[in-house]
C-alpha cells in the first residue's frame, strides 16, 4: 500500500513509448503480469500441445463458425421480429413479443437441451425424416446447437431492432413516401439502413456476448474449442493448463472481435446526425 502511494505521488516517473506517455505504476503492473505469465508458461506442463494443436485449431474454427452462423442467421430473423413488434397487427405483434419474452426469460441451456433432446426424440415417429438425405446431418449435434444459438440471438436482437426501427425519425419515412417509394423500397432504402446503423454498436457488443454463449453447444456433442480442451483435461489429468488455455483463447477471440467491431463502427456514415438535420 505504502509503495503504491509513493508511485502515485511521483509525477516524474513515466516513460514515453511510441509517442504515448506510460505511467510508472502501469509498467510495474505489466512486469508483474509478465512474470506471472512466464511462470505459467515455464512452470506448467504444456507438452500435450504438440499432439493436440490440430484439434485445438479445429475447435477454434468450429466455435467461430457457430458464432458467425448464429449471428448472421439470428440477425436475419431479428429484422422481421423487430418490425413485427412495431406492427399494428395484433397477431404479428403478439407473436413476436411472445417469442422474444419466451426466449429472453428462459436459460439458453434449457432451450438448447429442449431442442436437442426434444426434437431428437420426435424423429423416430416420422419415418420420412429418417429416410431423407438430411438425416445424417440431423444425427449430429451442430444443427441443434446452431438453431438454439440463432433463436437466442434473434430474440435479443429483435428487441434491439425494434428500438432502432422506432427511433428512425418519422419525417424521413414521410419524405420517402412523398417521393413515391413503395413500402418495400422505403424499408430497403431508408428505414432499414438508418435503423441498422443506429443498432450497429449494440450489435457488435452483443456479438461479443454471443461468443461467450457458444461453449454451451459442447453439451450437445459439438466439438468446439471448449469440448476439445475439456477432452484434453480428461485425458491428461492436468488441472490448470487446459482451462488456462481455454480462458486465453476466449480472451484473444474477444480482443479480435472488439478490434474488428471498432473498425466497423468507424465506417458508419454520418454518426449522430443533429436532430434538426434529421427531422427537417
Amino acid at each position: 500500500m505504502k509503495q503504491t502511494r509513493q508511485i502515485e505521488t511521483a509525477p516524474g516517473f513515466a516513460i514515453v513509448l511510441a509517442g504515448r506517455r506510460i505511467p510508472g505504476h502501469r509498467l510495474i503492473l505489466a512486469v508483474i503480469f509478465a512474470v506471472i505469465l512466464a511462470m505459467i508458461v515455464t512452470g506448467l506442463d504444456w507438452g500435450w500441445l504438440g499432439r493436440w494443436w490440430p484439434e485445438i485449431i479445429r475447435g477454434v474454427v468450429i466455435s467461430l463458425l457457430m458464432l458467425l452462423g448464429s449471428v448472421v442467421l439470428g440477425f436475419a430473423l431479428a429484422v422481421p421480429l423487430g418490425l413485427m413488434q412495431l406492427s399494428p397487427n395484433i397477431v404479428l405483434n403478439g407473436a413476436a413479443r411472445g417469442f422474444c419474452t419466451l426466449i429472453r426469460g428462459t436459460p439458453l441451456l434449457l432451450q438448447l437441451w429442449l431442442i436437442y433432446f426434444g426434437l431428437g426424440s420426435l424423429f423416430p415417429h416420422f419415418p420420412w425424416i429418417q429416410e431423407s438425405i438430411f438425416f445424417p446431418i440431423l444425427r449430429e449435434g451442430w444443427p441443434f446447437g446452431l438453431l438454439a444459438l440463432t433463436l437466442s440471438f434473434a430474440a435479443y436482437e429483435g428487441e434491439v431492432m425494434r428500438g432502432s426501427f422506432a427511433s428512425v425519425p418519422r419525417g424521413e419515412l414521410q419524405a420517402g413516401k412523398a417521393i413515391g417509394l413503395s413500402g418495400w423500397q422505403l424499408l430497403r432504402r431508408i428505414w432499414f439502413p438508418r435503423a441498422f446503423y443506429q443498432a450497429l454498436p449494440t450489435l457488435v457488443g452483443e456479438t461479443v456476448l454471443q461468443l461467450k454463449s457458444t461453449p454451451l453447444v459442447a453439451t450437445v456433442t459439438v466439438i468446439d474449442i471448449y469440448a476439445v480442451l475439456y477432452q484434453v483435461r480428461q485425458e491428461t489429468l492436468l488441472t490448470y493448463e487446459p482451462l488456462l488455455l481455454l480462458a486465453a483463447v476466449y480472451i484473444i477471440l474477444t480482443g479480435i472481435l472488439v478490434l474488428l467491431g471498432r473498425q466497423i463502427e468507424m465506417r458508419i456514415p454520418g454518426r449522430r446526425p443533429s436532430p434538426s438535420a434529421s427531422s427537417s
Binding site: T4, R5, I7, E8, P23, H25, R26, L29, V208, L211, K212, S213, T214, P215, L216, Y226, L243, L246, A247, Y250, I251, T254, G255
Partner: peptide, 24 residues
C-alpha cells in the same frame, strides 16, 4: 481508487467480459 487499484479493477472487468461463464 489510486492508479494501481483502478487498473486492477479495469483488468477484472475486462477479463469477466471476455471469459465465458462456463469456463469461469
Amino acid at each position: 481508487g489510486n492508479p494501481v487499484v483502478r487498473d486492477l479493477a479495469e483488468v477484472y472487468t475486462t477479463l469477466i467480459r471476455a471469459i465465458p461463464e462456463l469456463v469461469l
